[in-house]
Design a protein around this nucleic acid. Structure first.
Length: 492
RNA sequence: CGGGGCGUAGCGCAGUCCGGUUAGCGUACCUGCUUUGGGAGCAGGGGGUCGCAGGUUCGAAUCCUGCCGCCCCGACCA
């Protein structure tokens, strides 16, 4: 493509990195591992937030906000939790700077050392459950259904824009329930909310499943996840929903009086999706010309570009375009009219292609004369001339719906074409090495086998699929009996 | 933390081996004219602590020493 972005074929990760930057989604910052999300990238994230937030509220959740700092002692209250996160925590040790005595700048004031260090939250279970102790007294206080939109910090060794950054934006739901079953139902419900969002808005098909014990969230009894397949054949974990059992309730002593006068620990869940979804969106659909954004998430669904030689033509076209714009907006379509005379039409065509605007309308003197407009769709790059009659707005709205479906179906077809059922370990290794994709294979259920396979193939068990058919088989590695196939892939 | 690579204009790079005019090219930016149905053309213009600090030298982007930062590959991870 024109702007020096490598093709996917040449250099997939180079393509991804350059696309993120050239499409104005994000850039690296002065702080190692942290990104600046630029206005266009953030507007897509805001579309995701808006739809997810609506879905959370429809399922009874309310938003709240908890502190970015966690007292160090909280982290160690749940033993597995601290094991999972200890290695990647940013720690605040002082609260003041002072001028250096040699005039070289500012230094940390040793006098200002904190009594107890503060951890910059890598996730908020501990600080939230500490509050829940006071919020929950009785079965009447349950269920407690809270969501938080926040930033978190995990000191990752190697980072990539959106896919893995030291600081990232996400939402984290934290709920408390009177019964185990109700908490499990909540965990499963939120997994389904995520799957629905990713499939219906992001147009990315996902596999719903359970993590193996080794991949489970630190402190969870069970971790549910959705896994998506990217164009390079690698899997991306796109959302997780955890059943916490009574682990955090015990760690933070959160008990409630039951209806019959007893005193019990509450049952918890937590669930989250992050700006990593931006990475999934980019990698699932985009091509060598730039981004492809599904209409339901596109900040701008239709861009209109005028083609004119003089001011007279410009104003005549603008007048017509305004009518079209209003008629589309009436149907809920978001429209941008770009009549800047600082860039030529060809430049704008390339620019909006790079940014993935789903539909482009171009109107020039010829169109004005014939009462037509050129309609180009981003996903297929097809162009056609359409009559500007009273059915036109409906046709564009219909086209956007069609594109949403087509983009999903293309991704689904790719996923199906790259999903294999394999029973022979040599074939298993060959496919993962040469072709990538999802591989369904039998597993004996042990950590040892999982670790060995990871060591030998770099592939991990992405999940134990939900609703899979029971099937007698033999573990692909050990040959021991297995009741069900699990999903293997190399992952981000 | 191990291995490799790189720091020169907003971005992408050449120049460094072998020290020597005023540090150069593409792109982007500014001005003007011509252009405008797929990233325009011509002319003119602005923009540089050559990563930082020290050293060698008449003279350092270039040689020496030390430091810093970034990227890629591994281990860790949403």
């Amino acid at each position: 493509m024109g702007k020096g972005i490598p093709t996917r074929e040449e250099d997939y990760s180079g393509w991804y990195n350059e696309l993120v930057k050239k499409a104005d989604l994000a850039e690296t910052s002065a702080v190692r591992g942290c990104m600046v999300i630029k206005p266009y990238g953030f507007s897509i994230w805001e579309r995701m937030q808006a739809e997810l937030d609506r879905m959370f509220k429809e399922t009874g959740h309310t938003n709240a906000y908890f502190p970015v700092f966690i007292p160090k002692s909280y982290m160690s209250k749940e033993a597995q939790h601290v094991d999972g996160f200890a290695k990647e925590c940013a720690v605040v040790t002082h609260h003041r700077l002072k001028n250096a005595e040699d005039g070289s700048g500012v230094v940390v004031d040793p006098e200002a050392k904190l009594e107890e260090e503060l951890i910059v939250r890598p996730t908020s279970e501990t600080v939230i459950w500490n509050s829940y102790r006071n919020w929950i007294q009785s079965y009447r206080d349950l269920p407690l259904l809270i969501n938080q939109w926040a930033n978190v910090v995990r000191w990752e060794l190697r980072t990539r824009l959106f896919l893995r950054t030291a600081e990232f934006l996400w939402q984290e739901g934290h709920t408390a329930h009177a019964t185990e079953q109700e908490a499990i139902d909540e965990t499963e419900q939120m997994l389904e909310v995520y799957a629905t969002f990713v499939e219906q808005f992001m147009a990315v098909p996902v596999i719903r499943g359970l993590k193996t014990p080794s991949e489970r969230f630190a402190g969870a009894v069970e971790t549910y996840c959705i896994e998506a397949l990217m164009q390079d054949g690698k899997a991306l974990q796109s959302g997780t929903s955890h059943f916490l059992g009574q682990n955090f309730a015990r760690a933070f002593d959160v008990k409630f009086a039951t209806r019959d006068g007893g005193l019990e620990h509450v049952w918890g869940t937590s669930w989250g999706v992050s700006t990593r979804l931006m990475g999934a969106l980019i990698m699932a659909h985009s091509d060598d010309n730039g981004l492809i954004i599904p209409p339901r998430l596109a900040p701008t669904q239709v861009v209109i570009i005028p083609i004119f030689r003089n001011e007279e033509q410009h104003s005549a076209i603008s007048e017509k375009v305004m009518e079209v714009k209003i008629s589309l907006e009436r149907l809920g379509v978001s429209v941008k009219y770009d009549d800047r005379d600082t860039h030529k039409p060809g430049w704008k065509f390339a620019e909006y292609e790079l940014k993935g605007v789903p539909v482009r309308l171009a109107m020039g003197p010829r169109d004005l004369e014939n009462n037509t407009v050129e309609v180009a769709r981003r996903d297929t790059l097809e162009k056609q001339s359409m009559e500007l009659d009273e059915t036109f707005p409906q046709k564009i709205a219909g086209l956007l719906d069609q594109m949403q479906t087509d983009i999903y179906n293309k991704a689904l077809e790719f996923q199906q074409d790259n999903t294999h059922k394999i029973d022979d370990y040599e074939e298993f290794k060959r496919v993962l090495d040469e072709e990538g994709g999802f591989v369904y294979a039998h597993w004996d259920g042990t950590d040892e086998t999982e670790a060995k396979i990871k060591e030998e193939t770099k592939a991990t068990i992405r999940c134990i699929p939900l609703n899979a058919e029971a099937e007698e088989g033999k573990c692909i590695y050990s040959g021991k009996p297995s009741q069900q196939r699990v999903l293997f892939a190399k992952a981000y």
